[in-house]
Write a protein that binds this DNA or RNA. Sequence first.
DNA 1: GCTTGTTAGTTACAAAATCAACTATTACTC
DNA 2: GAGTAATAGTTGATTTTGTAACTAACAAGC
Lengths: 150, 150
Amino acid sequence: MSHVQSEKNDDFDLQNFLPFLLNQASERASLEFQSVYKGRYGMLRTEWRVLFHLGLFGEMTAKDIGERAKMHKTKISRAVAKLEQRRYLKRTRDEADRRAEWLALTPAGQTVYRDLRNVAANYDARLSSLFNEEEAALLRHMLQRLAGLD
Amino acid sequence: MSHVQSEKNDDFDLQNFLPFLLNQASERASLEFQSVYKGRYGMLRTEWRVLFHLGLFGEMTAKDIGERAKMHKTKISRAVAKLEQRRYLKRTRDEADRRAEWLALTPAGQTVYRDLRNVAANYDARLSSLFNEEEAALLRHMLQRLAGLD
DNA sequence: GCTTGTTAGTTACAAAATCAACTATTACTC
DNA sequence: GAGTAATAGTTGATTTTGTAACTAACAAGC
């Protein structure tokens, strides 16, 4: 095991740099949950996100999902194709505006969604339990501000 | 937040799901900062991370960096090659264990590091200013716990 | 109507991340 | 000390993402 030089060259503290901290926390949180949707259903993060949005909000267009999840349209296009291919969702052309299509989960997709939603809720509760109620609420609030969601 | 389960469009709240929130906040924070090291020096996130670790901690091996930054060794290997090619770092074989090599910034690399460190510090201050001192400290503390860094 | 501009979504190609296999060296075991 | 396992780091193949160009449909101005 090699030895890390411990004298600091300056006073900048990487362990407290917010983008770094956010990234580390985010990676860790995503990774653990990822193993569930990947292991159980062979899904990627993009596919899980699309599935969740449809499960939560019902019918949406790809554009709607992109705006909500801040995902690029090519990612969504590919995720939708994959989910359709696995018969988790169906597309319906919008007859009023034939460029757009409405996406909705099939019964099979809804089953998968409900399963993952439960895992997600439990996982979220586990993460939250690292803090007391007040702290957890404040954390969510601060993250929403940082994310520009408030 | 409601605790009542309903069947259709249920009460699971994606906007409050921690992995999602962490991801959104992290992406936003990284993206803005990325434009600096990418625009100014054409660096990738992996390269910036390696540079920062070396700037902060002085000489390290690739393995050390991997453990600190939780980056996979292939990412590091490629980032190191790129930084070396740009003459931002030099490698020195460890004569006691000839498998390992010590990495250190060149003067040119240190100049780049100092520039980016200043930008980073300013950016961090700007993010932190969204909250009061107490909140910001708590946020960092909570993120460290979530990241498993404490 | 026709031209021009915009939007929803897809596709092709390039860049990057991931995973597995590889080399070289050191450590362990008998 | 020979043989096997483990470790530092690299390389190549595959998968995923990002960027730009594309198709098809609508919209607005004239």
